[in-house]
Every structure is written in C-alpha cells, then in structure tokens.
Nucleic acid binder design. Structure first.
Lengths: 247, 247
DNA sequence: ACCTGAACACCGTTCAAGT
DNA sequence: ACCTGAACACCGTTCAAGT
C-alpha cells in the first residue's frame, strides 16, 4: 500500500519528549499497538534507540504519555460556561453527553485507547488520566444535584459505560489486515450471532438484527441516557437543580 | 482461594489443548500477562515449543482460550430455575446481580481478564465469549419486561458497567512487584488524588475520601443498582409481562 | 498423529563511547 | 546535556527431524 510516506528527513527539529510522543501516537494510529516499536520510532525520528531512552523511561511510560496526550486533547475541548450571559449554558446532562461523545470519538479515532485506558484505570489511577476523566464527568454529576455520597457511584457508572461502550465500537480494524467497513463488520458479527445454537444463545440470536442495523453513535447515546435516567431515578432533583452555595 | 503449588513433573498425563490452557491460566494468575511465554509453558509442561503449537495456533488463540475457559467457568455457576417449586426463583434483578458478581469475582481472581475481555469484546465479538456474556445478562433483561427494541441498549449498559467497574477494582497487583494490600492501595490512590491541584481536579479531590473508605463489592453493587434503576425508569414494569410459574 | 529442539527474526533495554 | 549504535537477553514462531 501507499503508506510508506517517509518524511524522516526532519532533522531540523531537535528531539524532544513531545515529538517522541507525537510519533508514537502516529504509529499506534497507523500500524496498531504491535506496530509501536523502538526501532520503528528511531526510523521515523531519524535517531538512535538510546536517544529515545534519554527522554522516556521505557515503553510503558511512552504508552502512558501517548494515552495522556490523546485523552487530554479530547477533554480539552469540553464545553465551558459561556462568557456572554445571553447564550444559555448547556444543561448538566447535555454537558455529560458532550464529554462522553468527545471520549467516544477519541477512542474511535485511536482504537488502541480502549485497552490502554482500561489498563490505566485499574493499574495506575494515581496518574493524571484517571482523575482527569473522573473530574470531567464528576463535576457535571455534582451539577445534577446528586447528593455527595452518591457522587462516586454515579460517576463510576457513567465512566465505565462510556469507556466500555466506546471501546466495543472501536477497534474493528485489526492491525494485520485491511480495515473493514464498519457496516460489513457489523454484518459479519450479526451473521455469526445468528448462526449460534439457539438453545445456548437465545438472546444473542434474538438481538443480532438490532446489532446489524444500529447506528453506533445513536446506540452509544441511548445507553448513556439509560445510565443518566438511573441517576435521576435514584436521586430525583426535587430541589432546584442548582445546589445552594450556603455551607 | 487456594494457592496451588504444582510440580513441573507431571508427565503421566498426555499433552492436550486443555492442559495447555490450564497451565496458561495458572501462569497468568501467578506471574501476570508478561509471564505467559511459550518457554515458561514448555518448562511447566515438560515439553517443547513445537508441541504446544501442535495444539494451539498461536499466542493470541491461547489467550482467547484462557479467557473463554475462565469466563465459561464463572458463568457456568449462574443461577438456574430451581427444580423444587417450594424454593422461589430469584427475581430477574437478583439474578442479574448474581451473574454480575460472578464476573466481578472472576476478574478479581484473574486480573488479566479485564484487559483480555475488553480486547475480545471489541476485536472478536464473533467468538463465543461475547455472546456468552451478553446472553447471560440479556436473558434476564428480557425477563425484566424490557421491550424488544430496548434489549440491546439495556444489556450493553449493564455489560459495560460490570466489566469496567470490575476491571478497575482488580489488578492492583503489578506483575513486577509485591502485591499490595487492597486497603493500602486505595489509601495510596486517595492520597494521590488529595494532593492534586484543587483548581484542576476539584471532583477527584472531593471524592478521594469515598475512594479510601469504600468497600469494593458494595460499591460495585451500588453502581449496578443504578444502571438497573435506569432500566426500570425507562421501561417501567407496568404489567406483569411474564406471569410466574403457578405454584 | 504427535512431539523435539535448534534456528530465525524481532523486540525492549543497556551502555561505553562520542559530540 | 544529549545522542549513537552495537550488544544482550528474551520472545513468538517455524520446521526438519524424530517417534
């Protein structure tokens, strides 16, 4: 294929951690997780392996930095309160939908994010990416009027749904093959599910049709609304939605 | 949770795919994902690398088979309708809680499952593990009285929450270090969150206390109930869709 | 059919040596 | 301080050769 566009003669810029992370993201996007090697990196950056190790401790740290960079960019465009009082601010549910869609699209654009985020959430929640995601959603959960002892549960449910659902939608393109059309992929899966033993998998069979026809984004938002409905059901906004600022 | 120390000389049994998968699971459990190598496997099974390749195509397939085996065992103990009419059947929500707890415990016992399941759900939903999990939960969603066009959304929300939340609880033990006590781990994370910049991470800071004190299982079930509440809110069980078996 | 084990290509990481 | 690139230990996979 024509993916051999090698612009490795870019030695004008000095090597930096930023440039290394940037190249790592590009490699992950184009050749997948298995394609990110220090050798490929050195070729792309026209340098030696030792140079990379001067800026980055090891591959795990590089993967973490790549994840941070992409997630940071996705959450950076999150909606902020408008400066002009004329424009009405988004409602908390709408803001949550916007943040969730931002993460959805980031994972869609960078399928390796799904696995990487799952690893980071469980293995290194002290890093910046976990609190960043939790904060971005948790702030809006608070604005929904959820009482304090429900913050963590509600935010966890949202975060896990968002990352899990987005992860399942992405990554239909394998590293070792031509990326299939999304519709074709869904059709293959639906067909496989329809051919399962109806005694062992009655539900998968029954739902195969919905799988084939569904729209990813619509489906994602429907599930998000379901979780939001659960929050509202458990914490009905009886009072005015804005919590009083009195201590 | 018996820590079984197995001697490597067990040459009485012939090599088989089953025995290879069993050894792979043991290696994954004891030395983590990076510890599963064909060399370690050959040593443990007292054989050569070629012998393993006779029964298993490659490492990916082996990882998939290990995942299947563990998930299959976890879902095999799922509650079945009691044979004696005297014992009342569990309600659908209780059954969903039981299945979810089974997966929670499987992931807790085998932390590598979290990443592996995320990969399988997105990359190979045609395999048996995805429809198995979806079916196990989806059957009960159906029993809740959810209308057909809501089956997939409700089941997806549940599955993604369960796998995500369970995955975050597990895997606090790194492969390259002594496994920390869970309480100590949570305390470390909470401390790290408390030390974040309050302007950038107000929510993470505010919620750090809940993080330190919470009980994993209780927290997991609270989130599950939140998603269940969302299902009930969106699909109120107005009429008894399924009259229970007349006693 | 099932297994052996050397060989191959490739990978992450290190380090003495250069500027 | 920053970079080079050979060297090392290790890994997944193959395959001619054995039973």
């Amino acid at each position: 294929m024509a993916t051999r566009t090698r612009r490795s003669q870019r030695r004008t810029e000095a090597l930096s951690r930023e440039r290394i992370v940037e190249a790592a993201v590009e490699l992950l996007d184009t050749v997948g997780e298995s394609g990110l090697t220090f050798r490929a990196l050195t070729e792309r950056l026209a340098t030696g392996t030792g140079a990379i190790y001067w800026h980055v401790a090891n591959k795990d740290e590089l993967l973490g930095a790549a994840t941070e960079a992409v997630v940071g960019a996705a959450l950076a465009v999150e909606p902020v309160a408008p400066t002009t009082p004329a424009a009405p601010a988004d409602s908390p549910p709408d803001e949550i939908r916007a943040v969730a869609l931002g993460l959805f699209e980031a994972i869609d654009d960078h399928p390796w994010l799904a696995t990487q985020l799952a690893t980071q959430l469980s293995r290194s929640p002290w890093g910046s990416v976990t609190p960043r995601i939790f904060d971005s959603i948790g702030r809006r959960v608070r604005a929904l009027g959820v009482p304090e002892d429900g913050w963590f549960t509600a935010t966890s449910a949202l975060v896990h749904y968002v990352l899990g659902a987005a992860g399942q939608n992405a990554a239909n393109s394998r590293a070792d093959g031509p990326p299939k059309d999304r519709a074709e992929f869904l059709d293959d899966v639906a067909t496989a599910w329809e051919e399962l033993d109806p005694d062992d998998y009655p539900f998968a069979r029954a739902v195969a049709g919905q799988l084939r026809d569904h729209d990813d984004r619509e489906q994602f938002l429907a599930g998000l609304d379901l979780v939001l409905a659960g929050i509202t059901a458990l914490h009905p906004p009886s009072k005015p939605t804005h919590p009083p600022h009195t201590p």
